[in-house]
Design a protein around this nucleic acid. Structure first.
Lengths: 199, 199
DNA sequence: CGGATGACAGATATTGAAATCTGTCATCCG
DNA sequence: CGGATGACAGATTTCAATATCTGTCATCCG
């Protein structure tokens, strides 16, 4: 089962890096460890990723992209009521984060550190999420059920106002049982404001 | 004016501790430093505060109480329109935090660390702030200008939804120029939902 | 007597020498 | 020739010895 028989691809390096990060944590995971796990020299890893930071960013991007893709399904479900989609999307974002943080806190902490390092990648991820939200708000405006002068700004406000329920810096709060009710209270307050006045 | 001539009070110890924290930062400030600054032995400090943690908590409490008192003025101004008071209170909270973080980032970071250590004290501070907010919401409900079935829950939602604009973990964001507009967008969205429907 | 002191034990932090890591590149191999 | 290698320099981390700190308490002093 010598891994050296397969070609060394960026993909295989990323998988090995995830494994090394899972095992050693963000502080102790080294490029040498990754190379060792793949049975190659560390020089070979540098052929595919210019720096250790670039390698870590690529791992972070993969992880963030998995979240985006899961949510894209809800955002794109054109058949459903936009208000319900908005609620479900924000609830799904919260549940996904909470599940990860609760199920494997160390791995979640590891990725939180990576996210803190990877400026550009994170910005793009947040832009993608906000774009999905904007799409839902626009659908609501088009259908006449939601009122928003500037859907993109409104989506931003929705995302910022729910930070407590998706930002890793609040991960400790997600264990408290009241947290679900707190999300519902924020959702109720905001959606009351978003609903188009009945004429 | 040798300080040794004055009596050693909890108050004087707190002042000296603030000074030592300001100078050395949270990691390097020791009880021995505080005693040295006061010209006494460190055993004397332990006569007034059972542990180093208790001393740090007392310093934290003083700092947090200063913020609460400044905001209490806005919350208690019964003469003004509750919606305007709500906006001003949340804006004042944001401005106070932003000013501190911008003016002396090191000191702000120091207090952020202390806040992270001082569980109970911080909980009480948050309870006090939420109580002030609840008072404003109740005044609005009483005046008929705001609609809230459960003012305390609504106040909690308002506080949670504006976390981005007062929680120290977002201090880095407060330097961006767009941040003021983002707060206004969140306030607009929430206050639209809070406003009592015109009959 | 009530409050301040400083010696002390165990816990924590600092320090500097040795080990390891990052990133490069001349060299090797299929 | 194109990709893998491992020696290397400089940066970073580890580790163990050393120093400092926390919290207690028997003792001292006004």
């Amino acid at each position: 089962m010598s891994p050296t028989t397969e070609t060394l691809t960026a993909e295989r390096i990323l998988e090995a890096t995830e494994e090394v990060l899972r095992r050693h944590g963000p502080a102790k995971a080294t490029v040498v460890d990754v190379a060792r796990a793949l049975g190659v020299s560390h020089g070979s890893v540098y052929r595919h990723f210019r720096t250790k930071a670039a390698l870590r960013e690529a791992v972070t991007k993969r992880w963030l992209d998995r979240t985006s893709e899961a949510l894209a399904g809800i955002a794109a479900d054109e058949g459903r009521d936009p208000e319900a989609r908005l609620r479900d999307w924000l609830r799904a974002l919260f549940e996904a984060k909470r599940r990860k943080a609760g199920h494997d806190p160390e791995l979640f902490a590891t990725y939180s550190v990576l996210v803190g390092e990877s400026g550009t990648v994170v910005e793009e991820h947040l832009a993608e999420l906000t774009a999905q939200l904007t799409g839902i708000v626009e659908a609501g405006v088009a259908a006449g059920s939601l009122a928003a002068a500037d859907p993109a700004a409104t989506a931003g406000a929705l995302f910022h106002a729910t930070g407590r329920f998706h930002d890793p810096c609040y991960a400790g709060e997600w264990k408290r049982p009241e947290i679900e009710g707190e999300l519902e209270a924020v959702l109720d307050l905001m959606l009351r404001g978003l609903r188009a006045p009945v004429r």
